[in-house]
Design a protein around this nucleic acid. Structure first.
Length: 119
DNA sequence: AACTTGACGAGGG
DNA sequence: CCCCTCGCCAAGT
């Protein structure tokens, strides 16, 4: 299956490219879509060297609703600033509400518990 | 081939 | 809300 296609990195890029402005996805979500035993750490590994010119890297944050950058590279929180420009609101502690901004590709809208009755 | 590093995440304290 | 411990896994040494 994995038609090589440069490997799983390409798949990560394709997923991130789909995230709309003003919305975000977590490393864990992406890892789950990759399946095949990939973990959030692996996604983070891919993102640290992502091509920032062609991929909206800023729309990937951690499961706490915070930006994982700003510790080393990038002064303070460039990532958060860009997301705020896209309309996302962050608390004083640098956290945004995932229940509001989290986005999922078609077919992965959360499994919730889709009541078998409705629909 | 063994050991170390992370843009992670869930669980505890 | 902050901090630490573990489990995970690809890459780099």
């Amino acid at each position: 299956m994995n038609r090589d296609g440069q490997g799983y990195r390409e798949r990560v890029y394709e997923i991130v490219k789909q995230i709309p402005s003003g919305r975000v996805m977590t490393y864990g979500q992406i890892a789950e879509i990759l399946g095949e035993g990939y973990t959030p750490r692996t996604v983070g590994y891919v993102m640290h060297a992502v091509d920032k010119e062609n991929v909206p890297w800023q729309r990937v944050i951690n499961s706490q609703g915070k930006c994982s950058t700003g510790k080393l590279l990038l002064p303070h929180d460039i990532q958060q600033r860009i997301l705020e420009d896209e309309g996302i609101i962050f608390t004083d502690s640098g956290k945004c509400d995932l229940d509001v901004y989290r986005w999922s590709p078609a077919g992965y809208e959360e499994k919730k518990d889709v009541s078998p009755k409705l629909f």
